[in-house]
């Protein structure tokens, strides 16, 4: 029976993937709200690559939550490169032997071509006067951010709020937990993704403040109307990296390493950085950062390594089942 099934499965498998010598296509597995950003990056990369190498290439895009993407790659999705918004999901690929352990040193800025930070979107005129993290725990404030269990975006929000509270309460864990619990109690609905939360805030008029990436906040203001919403950048926030990596196991079997490298390098080029900044991401390229300086107010950023001792520790202490996040989220 087993043999029969196996041969049936083999007969059913219509699509075989032969290893081509010089592939001219690339699959970029990305996070779920990056479609327009990479549409623009790809449209700029293809002619640039053709001019330099004389080859017309195709860039295929796949978008989903980054945990879903990492899972798919571990199970065989042949993505040559990943452009995620979560470091931890690339670490999963490292564990699975798909990405080399030193991936963060392969590209500049810890392999993060652009970055953002959790910021606030409030209704025009800021009627509730929300200016910093402390306001989120007020009884009269309703807060919207997605489910930190399913959305990386909200995990940054949780960590940023905790980083602020750690400073505010000078490390008094009981007060930090009390503060965070209050914030979570002020959330009427936990959407599963970042865009869902934005829609709940904008289209359904829920909440007084939406917390999401600054890139999302600024896009929302420009897309949905500066007359209806405004952005608020808190006193301190958390550096949210958008890490990229070459999926070694895939590029080695397909022979697409050069193309993959050229593609990710392009994201660091002036043109690539300009596109990312145009889509409201902060960039490290000084020329481009200067061009867009008026868009991004000064803000003090802490990073996960300084504030929490690195992503591995954060995953274990905060986000694992029964961890510190569950203490303020589940045991309300």
């Amino acid at each position: 029976m087993n043999k029969l099934l196996l041969s049936a499965a083999a007969a059913l498998a219509l699509v075989a993937t032969p290893a081509l010598a010089q592939p001219t296509d690339l699959l970029n597995a990305s996070y779920d709200i990056a479609r327009e950003l990479f549409d623009e990056e790809n449209a700029a990369f293809i002619p640039a690559y053709q001019a330099a190498n004389g080859v017309a290439v195709t860039i295929n895009q796949s978008h989903a939550g980054t945990s879903t993407q990492a899972r798919a790659i571990l199970e065989g999705l042949p993505a040559d490169v990943v452009t995620f918004n979560q470091v931890t999901d690339i670490e999963k690929l490292v564990e699975g032997g798909f990405v080399s352990a030193d991936w963060q040193s392969e590209f500049a800025n810890s392999a993060s071509p652009f970055y953002s930070l959790p910021a606030f979107l409030v209704r025009a005129g800021n009627p509730k006067g929300i200016s910093d993290w402390g306001d989120l725990a007020r009884d009269d404030v309703s807060v919207i951010f997605p489910n930190p269990k399913t959305s990386g975006n909200a995990r940054y929000t949780y960590l940023a709020a905790r980083a602020w509270a750690n400073e505010e309460f000078a490390g008094d864990e009981a007060k930090v937990v009390e503060y965070l619990t209050k914030v979570f109690l002020n959330v009427p609905v936990f959407e599963t993704g970042g865009r869902g939360a934005t829609t709940a805030f904008a289209e359904r008029g829920l909440g007084d403040v939406l917390i999401t990436f600054e890139a999302e906040v600024l896009s929302a203001v420009s897309l949905l109307g500066a007359d209806k919403y405004e952005s608020v950048v808190p006193s301190v926030s958390l550096l949210a990296e958008f890490p990229v990596a070459i999926v070694d196991k895939v590029v080695d079997s397909r022979g697409s390493r050069d193309l993959a490298k050229a593609y990710l390098d392009f994201l660091y080029s002036d043109d690539g950085q300009r596109i990312a900044a145009g889509r409201n991401h902060r960039v490290n390229n000084e020329t481009v950062a200067a061009e867009f300086a008026d868009r991004f107010p000064e803000v003090r950023l802490v990073n996960v390594d300084e504030a929490f001792g690195g992503w591995a520790k954060v995953s274990e202490e905060h986000f694992a089942e029964g961890g510190l996040l569950d203490q303020v989220f589940v045991n309300q």
């Binding site: 499965a9 798919a72 999705l77």
Partner: peptide, 27 residues
């Protein structure tokens, strides 16, 4: 279906040995 046909699934090693891809295709 991932548990069955995925790279780490039940039939994964067999499919990979024969360069057959089931997951992430229209099939």
């Amino acid at each position: 279906y991932l548990f069955l046909y995925g790279g780490q699934g039940l039939l994964g090693p067999f499919l990979q040995a024969n360069s057959l891809q089931v997951m992430f295709t229209p099939l």
